[in-house]
Computed example of a mutant assay.
Amino acid sequence: MKVKESSETKVAEKVIFPSSTIGVIGNSPNGIELVRKAKQMGFKVAAYGSNAESPTLREADLAIVGRGNDQLQLQKFAERCDLVIYESEQVSSESIKFIQRFTNVPQGSEALELMQDRLLERAFFEQINVNIAPYSTIVSLDDIYQAISSIGFPCVLKPIQKGLMHNSQFILRKQSDVAKCAELVEQGTFVLESWVPYEREISIVMVREQSGTMRFLAPLETFYQVHHLNQVVGPAKVADQIWDELKNIASQIGDNLNYVGVMEIGFFLTQSQAIYVKRIVPALHESGYIYQYISNVSLEEEQIRAAVNMPVVTSKVIQQAAIGFFQEKDQQSIKTQWVLKDNWFYHFFRYPASMLPQSKSGFVAITADDGYEAKGQLDSTGIWDEKQPTEEKSED
């Protein structure tokens, strides 16, 4: 007679212990931090990416080089891993679906697939009844003319696939701008989205455990320039009732996604305190680098803990800070601050020449009694003034 397994035994079977192999797939700076943290926690690490010189692959115990659609190499990678973590939202959801045939991917592929396609993403938001900007599907120039009557000006034309056609977002401010989109819409399917007159952008970062429990970290305020994340302040100053509503929306989203690990949800907040969901990142996001300066946790460790079914650390704020991302052309200005500031902390991504150019070379973190005061220190240098990034890759 087979003995009935206890719930404790079932949970224990799902736990991944040190000396097991964790796979990390992707090429962003998140990867090397994940690899380092996993090794520190006693795991062996295999890494998969398209460039043998990637810092992530060089840091791993086992490096497997292959393109995102190289099924032979993906299978080889997956079969060497007890589980796989994708380190950014840029990893192909099709690659993750293939890997799932051979090993466990706690994050799953569903959330990644939804959030890489703007139409699927918006359909998901509508299904769970969260507030988003009005939009319309565009396949021809006539569709834009028809949609304008309900969406109005200003509005933004975006390709449905995130990460593709990097220069293809276009803001329409008046009727004559529509004709300028003629060549653009011939390249594929787009969404035309109403411009939300937001006053602030607030991000919630949460960790969803395998049990479905969600742990919230301190809110962040994010500042973008030309679709690129420029600065982050944490913790964000948010009224209690707004914070409670943001957590409610985030919980609703988390409950409806088959996802385990760190997730960031971005919100627009208008002057009248109306809340719009901007985007979901079902992976580590660069805004989360600030947590190592303001709290007792690192997102990399939280991601690993959730994936291997360890208890997730309860996050506590220990100080306030701001971070500012810099580019290669800012290096001389950064050197000036290097010899002047005793509360500036520097993080360089150190890409090899074969992976350049990149939109960001690293970031500076400033700790202070008030995170917005720290942002003021960044602003006073002029390094983070409005400017055109070196690479036009949209973050949404």
Rank of each mutant, 00 (worst) to 15 (best):
V191L: 08
P389D: 08
T336P: 00
G68C: 02
V364G: 00
E395Y: 11
S380L: 06
A322M: 07
I132L: 14
G23R: 12
G288A: 12
I171R: 09
Q252K: 14
S359F: 10
L164A: 13
P352Q: 07
V3R: 10
E186Y: 04
K335C: 06
T103E: 05
D117R: 03
Q90K: 11
Y289I: 11
I151K: 07
K39C: 02
I96C: 05
A63D: 14
A12N: 10
E183W: 01
Q100N: 10
P29R: 10
Q332F: 15
G49W: 00
H227L: 13
R118G: 00
N27M: 07
E301T: 09
S203W: 04
A111W: 13
C81H: 12
M165R: 07
G68L: 04
K335T: 05
L62R: 10
D379V: 06
S168P: 05
P159S: 03
V185M: 01
I204K: 02
Q388A: 10
N309Q: 14
L112S: 07
P311E: 06
T21V: 09
T189G: 00
N258C: 08
A236S: 07
F325P: 00
S203C: 12
K329H: 14
L184R: 11
V308E: 08
S380K: 10
W384S: 04
K360H: 09
W344I: 14
F17L: 15
E221P: 00
K14R: 15
A274T: 09
Q225A: 05
R215Y: 06
A38R: 11
S150M: 09
N104L: 13
G163A: 05
G382M: 14
I242Y: 02
A60M: 14
Q116S: 03
E386C: 03
D143T: 00
N248L: 13
T336L: 13
F349A: 01
L72N: 12
E33G: 04
Y198Q: 04
V84H: 01
L172D: 00
S211K: 10
E183G: 08
K180R: 13
F124T: 02
V45G: 12
A307R: 12
V232H: 04
E201S: 03
V178I: 15
